[in-house]
């Protein structure tokens, strides 16, 4: 499958996806680590894609939604923001509500 189609499928089949360097348990970039940690603290379920393990996605994701850096967070198919936006919401105590709303609207239990 074309890499753009793969990305599209990932962001549409999950309410919330973070594209990050490493995994939430074993991040390999401070910005990815911090965003994933803030998201885990909300208790809302989300999916992740480790771009280091998938160089094709790492190379092409910046063109998908015209966003140059990692991490990137998608909610219901749309780019929600990068690490800074997640941290801003977290600092303002809005992250949980935003993620919960996205989760409630999203596809239930993607296979």
């Amino acid at each position: 499958m074309d890499v753009m189609d793969r990305i599209r499928e990932q962001v549409e089949n999950h309410a919330i996806v973070i594209y990050m360097k490493g995994t939430p348990q074993l991040p390999s970039c401070g910005f990815s680590a911090r965003a994933a940690q803030a998201m885990m603290e909300t208790g809302v379920e989300f999916a992740y894609v480790n771009v280091i393990a998938d160089p094709e996605i790492m190379q092409n994701l910046p063109n998908f939604a015209d966003w140059p850096t990692f991490p990137q967070i998608y909610m219901n198919g749309e780019l929600f923001g990068g690490g800074d936006i997640i941290m801003e919401l977290y600092e303002d105590n809005e992250l949980k509500d935003v993620m919960q709303e996205a989760f409630d609207k999203g596809p239930k239990k993607a296979s």
């Binding site: 490493g22 401070g30 910005f31 990815s32 911090r34």
Partner: peptide, 9 residues
């Protein structure tokens, strides 16, 4: 806000 420390990646 402080930036996070690098983790090598």
């Amino acid at each position: 806000p402080e930036s996070p420390p690098c983790m090598g990646g």
